[in-house]
């Protein structure tokens, strides 16, 4: 039983690509802009173009497109089941529609419902890809740094940006330590004859307790130690703190911003004037 071997935190794939080199702040902001844009798309063609754009970015990040697509596999059954449930229970929402495709007892499937829900699914899938893209090409430390820097804009109105980043960093730092701890506890309990991962739902729940309680007790002990250690070293939040690596915008970052804006302008003028709304 080696838990620590198959732990991956986040989905980061290290590469030496232009996307990886972008300033994390730029990536976060551009990602937010793209996600917001996603909510204004109302056509299949729109989603397709957007999809191709995202694939292009994944390609630029030197991540195999198939690898990125594979992340969606566990979600497929979920999506299919949801789609079916939504269709089955959509009858009352589209009661005045005349475009009925199928009708039986309480089930009434209309063309409008099919369109609305398949568009929702396109949106969900694209949203999913955009998040994958961000996390595949940005390390967790990079994301934390970026968020800290973005949040510090709110410092004058009392947003504790550095402290929040410190919380995140402590969380990330302690996961591997806790995994080791957990392994030890599980082995110790198994040596005492505890069963792990067998039996029905109630039994499985009961098995979690002798593992979780010692783990959490130790966790609190560690927390107390860390508090003393930090206070002994005069930690006092973000005031006057400097960084070893300061984030600075480079030429690549401006190019990325320009490309994204250009894409969105072209994209929305196309959807507005060229592509018919029903496609």
């Amino acid at each position: 039983m080696e838990l620590s071997k198959d732990i991956t935190l986040g989905q980061y794939v290290p590469r030496d690509s232009v996307i990886h080199k972008l300033d994390p702040r730029v990536k976060i902001i551009l990602w937010m802009v793209l996600v917001t844009a996603l909510f204004f798309i109302r056509t299949y063609t729109g989603y397709l173009v957007f999809f191709i754009f995202l694939m292009g970015v994944i390609h630029l990040a030197q991540i195999p497109i198939l690898y990125a697509l594979r992340g969606l596999r566990p979600a497929i059954p979920f999506i299919v089941v949801l789609f079916i449930i939504q269709l089955l229970f959509s009858g009352s929402l589209y009661a005045d529609s005349t475009n009925v495709l199928f009708e039986w007892s309480f089930i009434r499937i209309t063309a409008e419902a099919v369109r609305t829900y398949s568009l929702t699914i396109c949106r969900v899938i694209l949203l999913f890809f955009s998040v994958t893209l961000l996390t595949l090409a940005t390390s967790l430390v990079g994301l934390t740094d970026g968020m800290e820097s973005l949040m510090s804009v709110g410092r004058p109105i009392g947003v504790p940006a550095n402290e929040l980043a410190m919380v995140m960093v402590i969380a990330l730092r302690f996961v591997p330590t806790l995994v080791e701890e957990l392994e030890r506890i599980m082995k110790a309990q198994m040596a005492r004859g505890a069963e792990v991962e067998t039996g029905n739902f109630i039994q499985r729940t009961k098995q979690r307790i002798p593992i979780l309680i010692p783990l959490l007790m130790n966790t609190f002990q560690r927390a107390e130690e860390l508090i003393i250690a930090m206070e002994a070293r005069c930690y006092r939040g973000g005031k006057g703190r400097t960084k070893r690596k300061t984030l600075r915008l480079g030429i690549l970052d401006y190019q990325a911003i320009a490309v994204t804006i250009l894409f969105l302008v072209v994209f929305f003028s196309l959807t507005k004037y060229v592509i018919p709304a029903s496609w």
């Binding site: 935190l9 504790p160 402290e163 929040l164 410190m166 919380v167 995140m168 960093v169 402590i170 969380a171 990330l172 730092r173 302690f174 996961v175 330590t177 806790l178 995994v179 957990l182 783990l215 959490l216 966790t219 609190f220 560690r222 927390a223 860390l226 508090i227 930090m230 206070e231 930690y235 939040g237």
Partner: peptide, 19 residues
């Protein structure tokens, strides 16, 4: 403002959630 205590406990419990 966040005390050291709050920062540390939030971080470590967050680590447990991730774990």
């Amino acid at each position: 403002s966040l005390s050291t205590r709050k920062i540390v406990i939030s971080g470590i419990l967050g680590a447990v959630a991730i774990l």
